[in-house]
Design a protein around this nucleic acid. Structure first.
Length: 560
RNA sequence: UGGGCUGUCGCCAAGCGGUAAGGCACUGGAUUUUGAUUCCAGCAUUCCCAGGUUCGAAUCCUGGCAGCCCAGCCA
């Protein structure tokens, strides 16, 4: 019996919000935001952040904005923006008001920068990138002041205005905050806050020649949106003093609290936009929405459901400890959802012909099975039983182990929803591979067990003349190493790609009702796993199914 | 050898000075026309280590150790 408090654990961010609510810190408001950079597709790690930010807003009757952190036009584009909006909506969340962009605030950001200069807290620096690195010092040595650090306010104002007007080339100079070149926190050593980039921006076109940096932009954007809790991942912890410094210098409407949590790490997968992009660009997978990708688009196409993803995010918790979650937990979440909700169907993946010698030649009969063993509301499905059928090759063995419950020569097995059959003899090809089974059926066993003997095995089947020929794509994990990008064995992550991550099966035989399948509803192919129609490559005359996840298989386990 | 952060079962994770929740995985066993599901049972005398405070410490103190992040005009 799970207690209610175990359903939604009190993670530390929830606790902070409850305390703030109790103390009236933000006048009882909770405002969060999800701030992706549109430079790639969202992945499972983003799903955690989305569930956290939108979930908290829901839970505390607050708001959550969707804001594109679009300060680097060279890497961003509209395709990514569109995909991100779609993915957030698909996960089941709606943002407050319109979509925001950091670029909406470029003018305000510029004016604040002028204000910083007026206060003598920012200056235009002509050091080039290499010089700046040199002046910055190292982790253990303090940096040195730039020779341009003490320019007068008027000169800085004029120079910054010229930067904006395009008087300088890319890289010629930058605007820096004047903080402390000897700070032990490198982020505080006069960070660059504006750089020159003479490129068009996907939102603002050619309006700007200078673009603000993340550290400067993010905190101000949060403040302008009156965010109360600015939740981000651990690597920004060192940036918090800068976040606070910027807001402390400026007349912003409020000062949000930055809170950091540990990003999601999943074993057997990579979640780095750079590496995911590489997999796509180099053709190791077929696009960002390849079902093997840990992207939200990929998982959607694979058959994962929004509620399974949300449940998973709730299961893994929110902490600051850097852990690695077992993909098995993700698989549990999707099985748990689909077991309850997926209609059942039969599909023979690797067909082996069965002829029932005592079944009337040109006869057949209709069989009605329930679509779900525990949920009658999902209705019934129609199957046709006839003389020639297919069963899966793995359900027949000539020399079986003693605990084999399926079909053997002289043995009996139940055809799911149909009759018990007995294998009389096996016909093999030149290589000794079984190509057909000659069997008999027991007409007294439809819907009831025979008297006097026990038949334990139940296998799935498809009729030879009343079925669909379909393609099935079996997906396995993309990498066969627990931590593909760790580099611990001296190998590049691409070397860990699983050569069997995609196995395409042609000529699978599926029950006829599957013509109605849609890419929005996953099925359980009984005894095999969960499958969904491929959203891209399937057509009405050539159905393609993707395997979402296998069923648990304790038989496969004992065989090892 | 600078700064920041983290160490509770194989994995995730509660715990906030009163005597180690829960989930995943795993192992039994029951039910089953899916070797699935469901059910029931088992699974940390101990919380990175060592000292200390206390009647009492995973929780407080001191000192170690280990891991992660930071030297982009990326986010």
């Amino acid at each position: 019996m799970t207690k209610p408090e175990n359903v939604a654990p009190e993670h530390f961010i929830r606790q902070i919000i409850k305390q703030d609510l109790a103390s009236g810190k933000h006048q009882g408001r909770v405002a969060t935001r999800f701030p992706p950079e549109p430079n790639g597709y969202l992945h499972i790690g983003h799903a955690k952040s989305i569930c956290l930010n939108f979930g908290l807003a829901q839970e505390f009757s607050g708001t959550c904005n969707l804001r594109f952190d679009d300060t680097n036009p060279e890497k961003e584009n509209q395709e990514y923006i569109d995909s991100i909006e779609r993915d957030v909506r698909w996960l089941g969340f709606s943002w407050s008001g319109d979509v925001r962009h950091a670029s909406d605030y470029f003018l305000q950001l510029y004016e604040y920068a002028v204000e910083l200069i007026r206060q003598g807290k920012a200056y235009v620096d002509h050091l080039n990138a290499e010089q700046m690195r040199e002046y910055r010092g190292t982790l253990t040595e303090a940096g040195r002041n730039s020779p341009f650090r003490d320019r007068g306010v008027e000169e800085n104002l004029a120079l910054f205005e010229q930067m904006r007007a395009g008087a300088f080339d890319d890289g010629e100079c930058v605007l820096r905050a004047k903080i402390d070149m000897s700070s032990p926190n490198i982020n505080m050593r006069d960070p660059v806050i504006y750089r020159i980039r003479k490129v068009d921006h996907h939102q603002t076109g050619n309006e700007w020649q200078i673009y603000p940096m993340y550290d400067y932009t993010h905190c101000i954007s949060d403040a302008l949106e009156e965010i109360t809790h600015s939740i981000c991942t651990l690597e920004f912890e060192d940036h918090r003093p800068l976040y606070d410094w910027v807001l402390d210098q400026l007349p912003v409407p409020c000062h949000p609290q930055q809170i950091e949590f540990s990003r999601l790490n999943l074993n057997y997968t990579v979640t780095s936009k750079r590496k995911l992009k590489q997999l796509v660009d180099e053709g190791h997978v077929n696009g960002w929405d390849d079902p093997r990708m840990p992207t939200i688009a990929g998982m959607r196409r694979r058959g994962y459901t929004p509620s399974a993803l949300r449940q998973f995010c709730e299961m893994i918790g929110v902490t600051k400890s850097p852990g690695v979650v077992d993909v098995g937990m993700l698989e549990f979440a999707i099985r748990d959802d689909l077991d309850r909700n997926a209609p059942r169907a039969m599909c023979v993946l690797r067909p082996l012909r069965v002829v029932l010698e005592n079944y009337p030649e040109s006869s057949s009969e209709e069989l009605w099975l329930s679509a779900h063993p525990k949920d009658e509301s999902l209705g019934k499905r129609r199957l046709v039983f006839e003389r020639e059928l297919f069963i899966d090759q793995s359900d027949f063995m000539e020399n079986p182990p003693s605990d084999f419950k399926r079909l053997t020569v002289g043995g009996e097995v139940r055809l799911r929803g149909g009759y018990i059959i007995k294998c009389e003899r096996v016909i093999k090809d030149g290589q000794g591979v079984p190509i057909e089974l000659r069997c008999s059926y027991d007409p007294e066993t439809l819907g009831k067990n025979p008297v006097g003997r026990k038949v334990k095995g139940v296998i799935h089947w498809a009729s030879a003349n009343h079925s669909l020929k379909v393609q099935v794509r079996l997906y396995n994990r993309l990498f066969n190493h627990t931590s593909p990008d760790s580099g611990e064995d001296g190998k590049h992550f691409l070397e860990h790609i699983n050569p069997e991550s995609l196995v395409v099966l042609e000529g699978c035989v599926a029950e006829p009702g599957l013509v109605q399948a849609s890419d929005a509803l996953a099925y359980q192919f009984e005894r095999e796993g969960y499958f969904v129609l491929d959203a891209k490559d399937s057509s009405s005359d050539a159905l393609v199914f993707n395997r979402t996840v296998e069923l648990r298989d304790s038989w496969a386990k004992v065989q090892k």
